[in-house]
């Protein structure tokens, strides 16, 4: 009897399944994205390299890279890419895949910050800056909060810090929750 073994998806296939990720197939490795990126010098792999590594199937190296987390979404690569592949979207796709695998990344605190931010959107539909920052420091490094104290005080002094969070009306909050719960049942983008 013959058993059919289902092959697991390759990294490139997973990337392509996320809207915006499919451009990876068209990359010609010209390096325009890396040359345009304001943060490329801080990344462990430049955007061009990351694309090449993903296509070579280097799953662990790609998903544990700090590169996509240093993308500030400035879209300079996107408007310059001669193949119209939208590298910014590709970075978002890689972030999503990395998060599915694990949140911890020793080389950057950005995933934790993004998670704290998302927790607020999910729970109350808006992002009160004070609450979100506090949550982020608790999750990442409470000691860093001390370093930020002078800055926080100055914001407070200038009337730029609201302690109270803006809340949606209860029925609107329920509506948003119903939509997000349904989205979760639908199981993501791919």
């Amino acid at each position: 009897m013959e058993t059919k073994v289902q092959r697991s998806k390759t990294l490139v296939e997973e990337i392509c399944a996320i809207p915006g990720g499919e451009g990876i197939l068209d990359c010609i490795q010209c390096g325009t994205c890396s040359a345009s990126c304001p943060n490329a010098s801080r990344m462990d792999h430049t955007p061009r390299m990351l694309i090449a590594m993903a296509r070579a199937g280097m799953r662990e190296e790609v998903l544990s890279s700090n590169a996509m987390w240093f993308c500030a979404s400035c879209y300079l690569c996107t408007v310059r890419c001669p193949r119209d592949i939208k590298p910014t979207e590709l970075m978002h796709a890689l972030e999503c895949l990395a998060v599915r695998q694990s949140l911890s990344n020793e080389r950057t605190r950005t995933p934790i910050m993004y998670r704290s931010f998302s927790d607020f959107v999910y729970s109350i539909g808006s992002v009160p800056e004070v609450g979100f920052m506090t949550w982020f420091y608790l999750l990442s490094n409470p000691l860093r909060a001390l370093k930020m104290a002078p800055l926080a005080l100055s914001l407070l002094k200038h009337g730029r810090m609201s302690i109270k969070a803006r809340r949606l009306k209860p029925e609107a909050e329920r509506q948003l929750r119903a939509i997000l719960d349904k989205a979760e049942v639908l199981g993501g983008m791919s």
């Binding site: 998060v99 993004y114 998302s118 959107v121 539909g125 939509i179 997000l180 993501g188 983008m189």
Partner: peptide
């Protein structure tokens, strides 16, 4: 009763939820 625009951070953590938001 608008809610958060969807935000870049949310996009990178849970894309479908962010789009729905």
């Amino acid at each position: 009763d608008w809610n958060c625009c969807g935000s870049t951070p949310y996009t990178s953590v849970d894309e479908l939820a962010s789009l729905c938001t």
